[in-house]
Amino acid sequence: MSPRSYRMGQRQAEVDETRARIVAAARAQLTESGALSLDAVARRADVARATVYYQYKSRTGLLEALCDALAAEGGMTRLAEAFGHPDPWAAVDRFVEVMAAFWSVDPACTRRLRALGALDEEVGRVIAERDARRRHGASVLAGRLPDAPPDAASLLYILTSFETFDALASETPPTTPEGSSPEPLEAAVPSVIRIARAALGAPAG
């Protein structure tokens, strides 16, 4: 490796580390305070405010990066398994499981983020755009179901929301048959699948 290539690789590693530290700071600040101030994020990440702007251009850019980090940690790339499954009902089940894993990454942060979205227009736009992707996915999967009700896509969209998992998980014992403890929101998966299948007209048995 040439010295120039080495220096470029080193600089990129430093940039990546700085970006990760900023996103982690944003996640921590949002979880703790329910707010997202670029000044506070910069102080927490131990960088200049200008560095946050340089890396993310705007508060919206930082919000997008935070959502992307949560999605990566939550394994959202596994949605391809749902859309690629030949059995439409198994595809719905997998969709529910992947969404549960995503929502379970950091429920406290997600709860704060979605609450802030109801009050802050900028945050609300980011949340709405992400929700629109899930609505589209629900529509695609619902369209594959035989004899599904007309509102199947809307039902699947609602049932795979954070709010649904959050509500059902609070009523679900946090243990599995093997004795392990799943993430709290993932404990609601069997309930969501059961409700989804009943609402969408799955065949008995």
Rank of each mutant, 00 (worst) to 15 (best):
A65R: 13
D147F: 14
E122S: 11
P177Q: 07
T176D: 09
P86Q: 04
V96M: 09
R135T: 09
D68A: 13
F165K: 06
R135F: 14
T77K: 15
V52N: 01
V98A: 01
R133C: 08
F95W: 12
G143R: 09
M99Q: 06
V92Q: 00
P182R: 13
H85T: 07
T176G: 13
F95V: 01
V52T: 02
R59V: 01
H85A: 07
P107M: 04
R125V: 08
T60M: 08
K57M: 08
T175D: 11
E183M: 14
R133M: 15
G143D: 12
R111T: 05
C67T: 10
K57T: 13
L113R: 01
A138Y: 02
E183D: 14
P174W: 04
W89L: 04
S170V: 15
E97R: 03
L62E: 05
L155S: 08
G61Q: 09
V98M: 03
L145A: 03
R112K: 11
T175H: 15
F162R: 03
I127G: 00
A69I: 06
R134W: 11
E122D: 15
P174E: 04
Y54L: 09
A50H: 10
Y54G: 12
S181A: 12
R125H: 02
A128K: 02
A167D: 10
V92G: 00
L116P: 00
R78W: 03
T176S: 12
W89Y: 06
Y157W: 10
